[in-house]
């Protein structure tokens, strides 16, 4: 076990843990936001740069600070490391800049975007972004395309986190999904003429931090904050069958995987559960689901808050930061 200090909070973690994982063990405000890192996808992270932190002391042996801000998701901790996240003005400045870059070509079409309300980019820009836009150039535009018959790709909204690429690479057996071109015109695409047909492909919707990949069976049906997330399960021969069913009254509007407080899927679910089973009779409803993360949904008081672990809505957290 090695000792690390993050924003003056000491924590003991196992060797080889990254700064981000160590911060997640502390929880709460010190956790840097992560748009591209996904603990279940090997090799992900390091790309979006929102999780940059300052290492004020490299280790107990070598107390020199690291010369640049480092990506907390991919930098392993060392014994005696001192990390500054929100306590460093440099980090806050850099994060503001990164949000600006991410939003530079983002269409900001939240009013018509299915992800609105559970969007990492929304949370991020609300927490760290600027109030005004500084660019007056036209934003990048791509046509909306279908990836298979159930998934829609809005490349305009994509922040190129590569999560879906890693997913397609690692969890489905045939890779037909990747990035074309380079630089500011690079785009996510599937192999020409080939839709993603794998039976787990629907999970790319859940790993997508923004509204770039959306569920065609749910598109424009309802805003997510009007729906009640319920834990539900069924006997499934392909996956575990444990899902979150998003309901309005007695109607199931959509099925997603269950996500933890960091927005990561607990267990990936199959396409059959996700897209085909929309009847109440298909599922055994266990009860309401706690949304432990900062989001519009958790701010919507449809559920009595009993647990201490529920984080206050982001607004409360961030007033302190500024």
């Amino acid at each position: 076990m090695i000792k690390v200090t993050i924003d003056n909070i000491p924590v003991e973690v196992e060797d080889g843990t990254t700064i981000l994982q160590a911060a997640r063990q502390i929880g709460g405000k010190v956790v840097p936001p992560a748009m591209c890192y996904y603990s279940k996808l090997k090799g992900s992270g390091g790309k979006c740069r929102t999780c940059l932190v300052k290492v004020a002391q490299g280790s107990a042996k070598d107390p020199r600070p690291m010369p640049k801000l480092v990506a907390s998701c991919s930098t392993p901790v060392q014994d005696g490391m001192v990390v500054q996240n929100l306590t460093s003005p440099e980090v806050r400045e850099a994060r503001k800049a990164i949000v600006e870059f991410l939003l530079l070509n983002h269409p900001l079409d939240c009013p018509v975007c299915d992800q609105a309300g559970e969007c990492d980019l929304q949370d991020l820009s609300f927490g760290y972004g600027m109030e005004e836009t500084t660019t007056d150039f036209e934003r990048r535009e791509y046509p909306v395309i279908d990836i298979g018959d159930k998934i829609k790709l809005h490349m305009n909204r994509c922040i190129l986190c590569y999560r879906c690429v890693y997913f397609a690479d690692q969890l489905t057996d045939k890779r037909m999904h990747g990035v074309l071109f380079r630089g500011d015109v690079s785009e996510i695409s599937t192999f020409v003429q080939n839709a993603v047909t794998n039976e787990f492909s629907g999970n790319v919707i859940d790993v997508c931090p923004v509204g770039a990949l959306t569920d065609k069976t749910f598109r424009f049906k309802s805003r997510v904050w009007f729906l009640k997330p319920m834990n539900a399960h069924r006997e499934c021969s392909i996956c575990s069958g444990k899902v979150a069913a998003w309901m309005f009254g007695n109607e199931i509007y959509r099925i997603t995987a269950r996500k933890d407080e960091f927005g990561e899927v607990e267990e990936f679910i199959c396409n059959e559960c996700r897209f085909e089973k929309k009847e109440l009779t298909d599922w055994v409803i266990e009860g309401p689901r706690h949304i432990k993360r900062q989001s519009v949904i958790s701010a919507n008081h449809y559920e009595e808050r009993k647990e201490q672990s529920i984080i206050d809505p982001i607004a409360g957290t961030m007033t302190e930061v500024e």
Partner: peptide, 21 residues
């Protein structure tokens, strides 16, 4: 640099094209 940026990380991908414009 805008043309040669790999587009992997956001500051370089968005920043180089912004500067060029």
């Amino acid at each position: 640099y805008r043309h040669e940026s790999c587009g992997q990380c956001s500051p370089c991908r968005e920043g180089t094209s912004w500067m060029e414009k």
